[in-house]
Computed example of a mutant assay.
Amino acid sequence: MRSIREVILALFLLISTLTYAGKLETVTTHSAAMNKDIKAMVITPDAYDTSKEYPVVYLLHGHSGNYTEWPKRAPQLLELADTYQMIFVSPDGNYNSWYFDSEIKPESQYETYVAEELVVWIDKTYNTIKDRTGRAITGLSMGGHGALYLAFKHQDVFGAVGSMSGGVDITPFPNNWEISEYLGTYAAHQERWEANSVINMTSLLTPNALQLIISCGTADFFYDANVKLHNKLEYMNIPHRFLTTPGGHTWDVWRDAIKYHLLFFDAYFKP
């Protein structure tokens, strides 16, 4: 049976943990491009100060996920927001949008939403560093593809980018994850599929234009594609960090990876 002293100590530790964790809230944003409201989760540091400007990290969920996925599956983000004094934003990507602006599905314009509309809304609503030097984006699986895709195309918006187990080459998967709903079938639109695969978008990069970190588990079905992207970036002399760990396409891998991504982003935000 616990002594009174032990109970008091346990309560003190619990209160201390709760006191120095970030604050989580659900927000509703509006996309003019899609004419609809979209939810996101925002984590701010516990001691959020309206007289201070904070860097922002956008966290993209994977296929079949939603805006609650990151805070729910990686609750350590509440502490990490406080540790690094960052704001985290986890938007909804409509579970399978792949963060494209779809040519055949006008109701799915998630490139415009995340890279333009959401960023503007966050900068108006919170005290942020309103510049690419204060913005990073990362994600897992579909969101890893999305983060690289958006950052490569919007280097004026994001200064640092990461990908965890990212689907960096979608062309080997013509029948998977409803991608054809947004790009058309691979058979009929092979050029469109290739143009929207991150591994074919490296021509948009110049050395040190983006701070770049890529991670993937060695047992992941996207591992080979990530290795190919890494090799291509090396060949092009594009500096980047490439991390591999044991494990597959799982949250155990991503919960670990996010720590390294945030450490990498913190170094970028505080050169």
Rank of each mutant, 00 (worst) to 15 (best):
158 F>I: 01
94 N>Q: 14
186 Y>S: 02
98 W>H: 09
117 E>W: 08
138 T>Y: 13
130 K>I: 03
152 F>K: 03
143 G>L: 08
150 L>C: 15
163 S>M: 06
103 E>S: 14
191 E>S: 06
140 L>Q: 14
117 E>H: 14
88 F>D: 01
74 A>P: 03
106 P>Q: 14
72 K>Q: 14
77 L>C: 08
119 V>C: 10
183 L>T: 06
162 G>D: 04
78 L>A: 06
147 A>Y: 05
175 N>S: 10
136 A>W: 01
170 I>N: 05
179 I>S: 07
129 I>M: 13
157 V>Q: 11
162 G>C: 06
94 N>D: 13
113 Y>T: 00
99 Y>R: 04
124 K>A: 14
189 H>P: 01
168 V>Y: 07
131 D>A: 10
164 M>P: 06
158 F>E: 00
192 R>W: 11
72 K>G: 13
111 E>N: 07
120 V>A: 14
83 T>V: 10
88 F>A: 12
83 T>N: 15
93 G>K: 07
82 D>N: 15
114 V>G: 03
89 V>F: 04
136 A>N: 08
127 N>Y: 09
109 Q>W: 05
131 D>G: 03
135 R>C: 04
116 E>M: 08
170 I>M: 10
92 D>N: 07
181 E>S: 12
182 Y>M: 08
188 A>D: 15
154 H>N: 07
121 W>R: 03
162 G>T: 04
189 H>Y: 15
98 W>G: 05
144 G>A: 05
187 A>R: 10
82 D>Y: 15
108 S>P: 02
142 M>W: 10
141 S>L: 06
185 T>L: 02
193 W>V: 01
86 M>T: 15
139 G>Y: 06
136 A>E: 01
92 D>Y: 08
152 F>A: 07
143 G>Q: 04
93 G>R: 05
172 P>A: 13
121 W>Y: 14
183 L>G: 02
158 F>L: 00
171 T>I: 10
129 I>D: 00
135 R>F: 05
82 D>Q: 13
169 D>T: 03
